[in-house]
Design a protein around this nucleic acid. Structure first.
Lengths: 240, 240, 240, 240
DNA sequence: CATGAATGAGACTTCATTCAT
DNA sequence: TATGAATGAAGTCTCATTCAT
C-alpha cells in the first residue's frame, strides 16, 4: 500500500449497480507473468512523455493492451506504479554501478570516463532518463514521491560518484577538490542533456539549438578531467 | 562578483499593498495600473512552485488579491498568462546579456565568469529559474508553449554563450573546442543546479544531498576555464 | 473540511485539458441565498430514499436544478453535505425539545405524551426520520459519520427523554424505574415505526402488514404511561 | 428463561477448518458438501457488518476460503446469495414460532414473555438480527429483495405475534386492544434494540448511550404486560 | 468443480473558462 | 472594470460478473 498519496477515499461501498450486460467479450489472453513488465514498459513510456500527473491510468492500461481495471490488479495505485517503474530502472542500475566502483582496478580518470559513458548508454540515452525529468517537474506536487526518489535514487547515485572522485584524490590522481561538489559537476551536464532529450528536445521545436550528446559528453570529459587531474597526471594522459 | 550586468531596479520599490489607505481614491482604482504586474508576480510564484498544469487560475487571482474573473480581463487564457510571465523575466534578461557580450572589452575568461555569476544572481537564484523547470516538465504536453519558449529563450540564450566562447577562441584565449557544445557545457551545471532548487531542493526531502550553489559554481568555473584555456592562458591566470 | 472520509487524494494537479467548447449555456439563475437550502432539501430526500452510499452527488445536484460542480461550491464533499443535512434537521429540533422540558410546568405524563406527539409530527412523519435509517444502515461503513451522529443526535436525544422520566420520578408521578432504560422504551416504538416508513413501508411491498402510526402511538402511550405511573397517579388519570 | 423454543443444535459443532489434514482425501473434496453453508456463514457475517450493497463478492468468497469464481458456482448472483441467507436464518425460525403458539397451553402473558425472550436468544442477540438492519437500509434500492423479505419474514412474523395477543384477548386475559397494533408495540423495542447492536452499537462511538439488552427487555415486558392485562390479571401476577 | 485474470461502467471530485450582474 | 456562481469534461479507482484454463 502506498504512502505517497492518501489512499483515495475508499470511495464507496458501492452504489447499487445494474449487472453489466453479459455480452461477448474479446478473448482474454492469459499472460500473468508477462503483464507486470508490459505495464511497467507502458507506464515508463507515458510517464516520460507526459509526466506523472498528466499520465492517465487508463492510457497506461490501453497501451499495455489491457483494460483499465487490469492495471489495478497489478499495481494498487498510480503512485505504486510509478515507484515500481523507478525501482525497475534507475534503482537497480545504481546498485550495479556501486559494484563497478568497488572492484575497479585502473586509473580513476578511466573509471569516471567509464561510468559517465555507461551512464549515458544505460540511462541518459534511454527512457529511464526521463524519470529524472518527471521528478524534477513534479517533486513539489507529490512530496512523498519526492522522498521516495531521494532515498532510492538521488542519494545512492550521489554517493556513487563522490566515492569515485574520492578514490582519485586518495590515489594522488586528482587535485583535492571537495568530492561531493565535484561529483555534482561531473554529473550535471549529462543529466542536463538527458533532461532536454525528454522535453524540449522531444518536441520538434523549430530552430531550437540541438544538443549532440556524444559531442557534449566528450567535451565535458575533456574539460573536467583536465580540470580535475594534477598536472603530472594530465601530462601522463597527454590531454593538454 | 556580478560586475557584468548592472543590478536591476527592483520592480516593486515598496509593496503597494502596504501603503496606508488614501482617502482621495478608493484602493481598487489606485491599484488598477499595478494589476498586470501583480498578476504576473503571483503567476510566476505559483507556476514555479506547482508547474503550469497544476497551477489553478483562481489561485493566481487570489494571490494577486483579485477575483478569478478579473484575471481573465488581463490575460485571456492561462497560456497567455504564462507567456507574459516568460517575457517579463527571462526574455528581457537575455536581451541585456547580449548587449554586454557585444560591448565587453576584457578577457573572455572574465567575461564568462561574469556572465555565469550574473546568471546565477539574476536567474539561477531567483524564481525565474523555476520557469525553465516548468518548460522541461511540460513542454511535451503543451507544444505551442514549447515553441514559444524555444524561440524566446532557449535559442537566444544559447547564442549568447556560444558567442562568448567563440570570442575566446578567436582571440586566442581558448582552445578550439566547438563553441556550441562548449556553451552547453558551461551552462549545464548552473541550470542543473537551478532546476534542483525548484524541485527536489524545495521539498525538504530527508537526507537528499544538498547542493551548495556557490561552491558548485566556483568548482565548475575552475574546472571548465582550466579546461578551456590554452596552457599559457592558464598559467597566466595562475589557476593550477 | 471533513474528517469523515480521508480527503480524496488531491487527485491531481490537473492533466492538460482542452478548453471546454464555448457553446451557449442556459442562463444561470442567481440564487445564491436559496441554493444551500435547495441543495439540502434535495440531499435529504435522496439520502432518505437511497441511503448515504447509494446517493450520487450528481443526482443531488440535478434534483436541486444545478450542475454537479455547483454542489461542490457549497459543500466541499459528500460527507459535509450529509452533516449539514443532519444539523439542519435533527440537531436543531433536539435543541428545541430541551427547552420545552426545562420550562414545562404540567404533569410529566402530559409532558411525555406531548414530546412523543411532537416528535411524531416534526420528525417521525417527516423525511427527517429517514436520517436515522441511514445511520442505522451505514454507521459501520462510515465510522466517522457515525461518531458525528452519536455526538450531535443520539446522545442529546437520549438525554432529553431521560431527563423527562427522571422528572416524573422526582415529582412522585412515576415508579422508580431506571430513567435511561425507560427513555429507550419510550422512544423505541416510535423510532421503529419511523424507520419502517422509510424502508419497507416505502416500497409498496405487496401484503406487508401496514403500520398505522397514530394508532400505534396511542396504544404505546397508553401502555407505557400506564406502566410507568404509580397507582395513585394512574387512578387520577383514570386510565385503568 | 427460554423455555418456549428448544435450543437449536449449533450448525457447526467444530470448525471444519481446524481439523488436521486427512491423508485419504484431499481437504478440498472433504469440504465439498460443507461449502454452501460455509459460504452462507461468511455471507451472513459480511452482510450484517457492511450491508448488502457494500459487501463484496470476493470478500465473501475469501472469508469462506474459496476463490471468487467458486461462489458463483453455488449462488448465481449476489441477490440469490442473500435470499439463501434469509431462508437459512429468519424464515426457518419463524416457522418454529408458529408451531409453539399453536400448541401452547399456559397463560398468554407467559407465552408472550417466552416468545420475546426466545426471540432475543435466537435472533436479537445473534447475527440474524442484522439481516433486518440490512433490509431496513436497502429495501428501497433493491425492491425485489424487499418483496422477498416482506413475504418470507415480515408478514409471517407479524402474524405470529398478532395471534398471540388475540389469544390473550379471547381468553379474557388482556384488555381488548387491537391485536395487530399491540403486536407491533410488543416487538418494536426488541427489534429496535437489535438494530442498534448492529449499527451504532457496533461502532465504538465514544459516549453514545449504551443499551443494555436484558434491562430493556425486562422493563419493556413489565410495562407492556402491565398495560395489556386486565386489572384482575395484573393483580394475580402481582406485578404492581 | 475450482480458479482468478480480466472487464468496464460508474462513483466522487477538480478546475478552466464564461457571463449576468 | 470587477465579481464570483455556474458549468461539465475528465481523472482515479472499485467491483459484480465472466470464462479460459
Amino acid at each position: 500500500m502506498s504512502a505517497v498519496l492518501p489512499s483515495p477515499a475508499r470511495r464507496h461501498p458501492a452504489a447499487p449497480r445494474a449487472r453489466p450486460p453479459a455480452r461477448t467479450r474479446p478473448a482474454r489472453q492469459r499472460r500473468k507473468e508477462a503483464r507486470p513488465q508490459e505495464l511497467l514498459d507502458a507506464a515508463l513510456a507515458l510517464f516520460v512523455e507526459k509526466g506523472y500527473a498528466a499520465t492517465r491510468a487508463d492510457e497506461v492500461a490501453r497501451r499495455a493492451g489491457v483494460a483499465k481495471g487490469t492495471l489495478y490488479l497489478y499495481y494498487p495505485s498510480k503512485d505504486e506504479l510509478f515507484k515500481a517503474v523507478v525501482r525497475g530502472t534507475l534503482a537497480s542500475l545504481i546498485a550495479q554501478g556501486q559494484e563497478v566502483v568497488a572492484q575497479y582496478r585502473g586509473s580513476t580518470s578511466e573509471l569516471i570516463a567509464g561510468l559517465l559513458n555507461a551512464w549515458w548508454e544505460r540511462v541518459g540515452s534511454t527512457p529511464a532518463a526521463g524519470i529524472h525529468k518527471i521528478m524534477l517537474a513534479e517533486a513539489r506536487n507529490f512530496p512523498e514521491l519526492a522522498q521516495f526518489y531521494a532515498d532510492e535514487v538521488i542519494t545512492p547515485a550521489h554517493r556513487l560518484f563522490s566515492t569515485a572522485v574520492q578514490r582519485g584524490i586518495e590515489r594522488g590522481e586528482f587535485r583535492a577538490l571537495p568530492p561531493q561538489v565535484a561529483a555534482q559537476a561531473l554529473m550535471a551536464p549529462l543529466i542536463f542533456m538527458a533532461l532536454h532529450r525528454h522535453s524540449l528536445g522531444a518536441c520538434r521545436v523549430h530552430g531550437a539549438a540541438a544538443i549532440e550528446p556524444r559531442a557534449l559528453l566528450q567535451t565535458h570529459l575533456e574539460l573536467v578531467l583536465h580540470g580535475l587531474e594534477l598536472h603530472a597526471a594530465a601530462r601522463r594522459r597527454g590531454v593538454a
